[in-house]
Design a protein around this nucleic acid. Structure first.
Lengths: 210, 210, 210, 210
DNA sequence: AATGAATGAGCGTTCATTCAT
DNA sequence: AATGAATGAACGCTCATTCAT
């Protein structure tokens, strides 16, 4: 009887199942190697090697590296964006808007640090930063939200473009440093970024001991 | 025997001269192609092609692409850092420190936008940011300067790491957007960044017309 | 139970029908792509793509590209050969034999020029000539007919091998040029080839105006 | 002193020597595999495999299969054409013109039968004929020569296009059959073709025993 | 019998690097 | 020291073919 009430999940035949599995395997592999080696340095063969599938199989699912990347983006967007937008739309105060954004970003980054965070390849002193799909998805609509918040009067009528830039810049860089620390203190990062954003240098928490 | 009679041309000076020239030629070529195609996409062949030298010659001067990059960095550091450090060491106020840093950075970026600024390759929605040598050189010692400024009491005793991160993040991102505009207004960018840094969102200049 | 009530569709006939249909579909597709892209350049995938069938299905009917080709040949042979043989067997004079052969060949070529005639791929200056099934079928038994005609005394006792060669060579090349012309004049081609064959250069119609 | 009179052959350094050798090696290899497998079926890797060189080396000399082919053509043209043209220009009679052309063609084919003659791949019953460079070179200017001969009054004013076609067709096909014989009798082939061309079927030598 | 995804060999090509000249 | 051809690994990609469904 229970069977009848529970909506039947779209039963996949074995074929569809493996197909879905493979697609996901490629996406997972891609996320890993993108994060490890950077998008530019990653080859399609790196991705398939990581999956254990045959080289030709890749092309049954994606036409190019770009396409996998885009798929990762779409994936991430689906999962990340709605919450972020919702949060920012519902923000009653400047601080809620700012803190909420940083909070969800830093928490997201902290959780998925292994494979998800932005890439930083240091070949020697070279820093290459690649925005992984999740990141892009996260900030993509920030500017729109900021503009709409300005219209609502929630945020002051400043240059929305530069404000977004500051937001993103601070989030990126602080998250990056946060992850490099032994025991990342997400709350501290949120606090710092929020205060910096809201009231600048002077409002930022003073370090008593270090 | 005939060989012995031919007066030996003053080879040594010239040799060294050419040697230095070649080295510089490679560096110049590398700077151009790095900026044009991005570090990751640049091949050694691209660099030597640009110089007109033979491919083997490259290896007389550098072992790898990385090494050229490092050399460019060192070059840039020599030219860029002293002024920056000097400026920050001599800063009497917080604002001088902050504004001075942004000012020299944004002006530098604006002047050299052609070949020197950071690379942004967009393959579709993919943002890859590569810090060119000059950029890195510019920010490399920022953290030290910040720490020293904190010690001097010029800056509040905040988390120097995160403060640097905010600095760099804001600078990067705003510079980036500035360059995308039709007529980049460097002063406006400096003003925005400085105020953001010093007093946050609320202090940032309000846009009256857009 | 419900399954049992549904009237069983007359499956058997249909099965065989589909089977025959598929076979024919593959043959048709092959003829088209062979003619379009040339035998050598055609891949099995090209053929199945053209049919809309699944790739695996191909192998239920043919083992290889060669085999499809052979089947096309057999097909054509069935349709083309009998008439040709008949014509040549019934020939009362040398001229009937020769003219009849050229006539049926040139007319056939002219009618099916779209997809059926021989392929000529020019990659640059390279001429690759591929005898399509129909063509081969047409000439395949020519030599036998010639030999038999010699025995009958219809044709002089010349080297049958070389005679066939001349026949084929003239037919091929003239047909080829005929098709390249704006308004192919089949009768003129027949006339030229027949005269060339029968009495050589001197007998060939003189061009008065061009 | 002798040195001064004998024109110094362009002394090649060791480098130039190997370079020339390699180029020639590739050309030779290409000629062989083109002849063996047909142009269409030949891959670049087939060619380099035949040379023993590394795969990348091919690209130091040629950009593509087409380019090698063209180079072979140019080679052949240089060697074959002048004699042919000369012969045909100097022809005093129809027969000289016709016989000379066949003669040089059949002799050429007979000599180089290994690697040089036209390709005939029989995969099963499939005949693919590929005109190798030498062949093309040989016949390329035939039509011009024919037209000029017609103007000179050496040949009757027939359709030059079709006449060329007949020439080429007969030459191709007879040469082909000639080569298939145990002991190719070049003179017989020349005789047959010439007579066929000049006076058709009736003039062709009768076979007494076979 | 039909399907179509998986496979891995092989293609054309580019590249970093070596080394005889 | 400069040269630039040779090298062979690796790339992106396509293909014939197999086989579980």
């Amino acid at each position: 009887m229970a069977d009848m009430q529970i909506p039947v999940p779209p039963k996949l035949g074995k074929r569809e199942q493996t197909k879905a599995n493979n697609r996901q395997a490629i996406l997972d592999a891609a996320r890993i190697v993108f994060a490890e080696m950077g998008y530019g340095e990653t080859t399609i063969r790196d991705i398939i090697r990581q999956t254990g599938l045959a080289s030709g199989t890749f092309y049954n699912y994606f036409k190019s590296k770009e396409e996998v990347f885009q798929a990762l983006m779409d994936d991430a967007a689906l999962r990340v964006r709605p919450a972020l937008r919702d949060l920012r739309e519902k923000a009653k105060t400047e601080e809620q808007f700012v803190r909420g954004t940083f909070e969800s970003y830093f928490r997201f980054i902290a959780e998925d640090r292994q494979t998800q965070h932005m890439v930083r390849r240091n070949t020697g002193a070279i820093r290459v930063r690649m925005d992984t799909p999740q990141i892009i998805a996260g900030f993509d609509e920030l500017q729109q939200d900021i503009e709409s918040a300005i219209e609502r009067g929630l945020l002051p009528a400043v240059d929305a473009d530069y404000l977004t830039a500051s937001f993103v810049g601070i989030a990126f860089e602080i998250a990056d440093r946060m992850l490099e620390r032994e025991n990342p203190d997400v709350d501290a990062a949120i606090e710092f970024a929020t205060n910096m954003m809201l009231a600048g240098l002077k409002a930022v928490p003073v370090v008593t001991d270090s």
